[in-house]
């Protein structure tokens, strides 16, 4: 991989796609194509396209338009916490 002179600002960020496994385990289906509507700016984006900050005590998914936190995931030995008050809704395609 190329080492581009990095502003750590962007270099620390990956896509929501990177946490597809955690999301799939929580929801029991692929969530990367589910659309999240930002409660702050009303932007809609697939969860796979959200900004993901995975290097911390938990995962923070942020709106690609306004950077507000859309959802947070914390995994403890006994539970998974999912908080999504930054999303007005998640829209999932009906499963056939």
């Amino acid at each position: 991989m190329e080492r581009i002179e990095a502003d750590m600002n962007t270099a620390l960020m990956v896509d929501g796609n990177a946490v597809a496994g955690e999301l799939q385990r929580i929801f029991g289906r692929d969530m990367t194509m589910a659309v999240a509507r930002c409660a702050g700016c009303a932007n809609e984006a697939e969860m796979g396209a959200l900004m993901a900050f995975t290097r911390g005590p938990g995962v923070v998914l942020r709106c690609p338009a306004c950077q507000a936190a859309i959802a947070r995931i914390v995994e403890t030995p006994s539970a998974i916490y999912l908080e999504a008050r930054g999303a007005t809704y998640l829209r999932l395609a009906a499963q056939s």
Binding site: D15, T32, M33
Partner: peptide, 25 residues
């Protein structure tokens, strides 16, 4: 465990033309 992720996928059925852009790995 896998396979995982439905966002970054392409199959022949999605059609083209297809432009792939890669850096390093």
């Amino acid at each position: 465990r896998g396979p995982i992720g439905g966002y970054f996928v392409w199959e022949v059925g999605l059609g083209g033309p297809l432009l792939l852009v890669a850096g390093g790995s």
